[in-house]
């Protein structure tokens, strides 16, 4: 199964190392594959360096694609992570 959604970066620091690490951590827990896309460039969401190279500041809208059995649950959690500003208070 494949799910595609657009998610917004809401924390003030943008998609920096700590936030990227949280995405990778989540990706490691799911069977499904995760891809993040910004400005036409798509990267593997289980690779911290690739995520960082997207260089997403606050306000970035990114296309998130999850492919696999547990993609729905994965997407729900990922959405919550983005919504919750990656656990940061700003």
């Amino acid at each position: 199964m494949e799910m595609v959604r657009r998610l917004k970066i809401r924390n003030s620091l943008g998609l920096h190392a700590r936030a990227a690490a949280k995405i990778v951590e989540l990706a490691d827990r799911y069977e499904s594959e995760l891809f993040l896309k910004k400005d036409g460039r798509q990267v593997d969401g289980s690779n911290i360096l690739s995520i960082l190279t997207l260089a997403c500041p606050k306000g970035t809208d990114m296309e998130v694609r999850i492919i696999g059995e547990d993609s729905e649950q994965f997407m729900t959690e990922l959405d919550a992570l983005f919504q919750g500003k990656f656990g940061e208070n700003k």
Binding site: R18, A21, D44, N47, L49, S50
Partner: peptide
């Protein structure tokens, strides 16, 4: 500990 976590992730990263 977070820094070390991210180092573990880099270790497994495709780019590396």
């Amino acid at each position: 500990s977070f820094i070390l976590d991210s180092h573990l992730m880099i270790l497994k990263d495709n780019m590396l």
